[in-house]
């Protein structure tokens, strides 16, 4: 066996190892992809637009935020700003994973950052911390199936969403707040979670009543983030990770 086939074999086996690890993520994200497609159509997107958003943005929570605000006829630039704000956590993933993939060719790195989702970061960082190399083939094996299924299932959800006759009886219009509450609860182990949530909730309700939608999103978010910045660092638990 030549050295070349050896490398090819190990690349293929790295890829398939990544694919195996991607399966739980594929299964867990499937209902949300279908839900996104159905809700996107319910909020005024076409099937093609729902498909495009999944293919190009590729960030579940931010896509849900986008269609929710779109359905409320919020100004386009504020929708984009909200998508940016929800996705802002990726900055930390990107800073973290950067040193793991610095040895890849630049084009591979550019692609790698495009599919850097929450689970992609978590699994890749875990591999790096166990002392193994994060290779491009393995990383692609982990990320590609999640991406392909996400996009296809979004389109299917959008097609299916057009067939639902009575969206109120099925609660479709209120599924997003439930989903967002679920996401908020998922962050509850983070330091300062409760004070931030209370501050954002109060500020957004007051802003909603006074200034009006859509400003309650920005004002509420700024209130929560400012509180986290202002409180002494020993409350926020960030310095303990040094």
């Amino acid at each position: 066996m030549s050295a070349e086939t050896l490398t090819e074999n190990s690349l293929a086996s790295d890829f398939w190892q990544g694919v195996r690890l991607s399966m739980p993520v594929v299964v867990a994200s499937a209902p949300f992809a279908v839900l996104f497609g159905a809700l996107a159509v319910d909020n005024g997107f076409s099937v093609l637009e729902a498909f495009l958003m999944s293919a190009l943005v590729y960030g579940g929570a931010s896509q849900m935020v986008g269609i929710q605000l779109f359905g409320q006829h919020v100004a386009p630039w504020l929708i984009v700003l909200s998508i940016f704000a929800v996705n802002f956590r990726h900055v930390l993933y990107s800073a973290g994973i950067g040193r793991r993939i610095a040895h890849w060719p630049v084009v591979s790195q550019a692609l790698g950052y495009f599919i850097l989702t929450d689970p992609q970061f978590a699994v890749a960082e875990a591999r790096a911390q166990s002392g193994q190399t994060v290779g491009f083939a393995w990383y692609l094996g982990l990320g590609l199936p999640v991406y392909v299924f996400w996009v296809v299932e979004s389109a299917l959800g959008a097609l299916f969403g057009k067939l639902i006759p009575d969206t109120h009886a099925l609660g479709i219009d209120f599924l997003l707040p439930i989903y967002f509450l679920g996401l908020v609860m998922g962050f509850r182990k983070r330091p300062l979670w409760l004070p931030v949530v209370i501050a954002s909730a109060c500020a957004s309700i007051i802003a909603y009543k006074t200034v009006g939608s859509p400003w309650h999103v920005s004002i509420g978010a700024i209130a929560g983030v400012l509180l986290a910045v202002i409180l002494p660092p020993h409350h926020s638990g960030v310095e303990t990770r040094r």
Partner: peptide, 10 residues
């Protein structure tokens, strides 16, 4: 750290 919970709460 506070950004996602703050945005989603609103």
């Amino acid at each position: 750290n506070a950004v996602p919970a703050a945005v989603l709460t609103t």
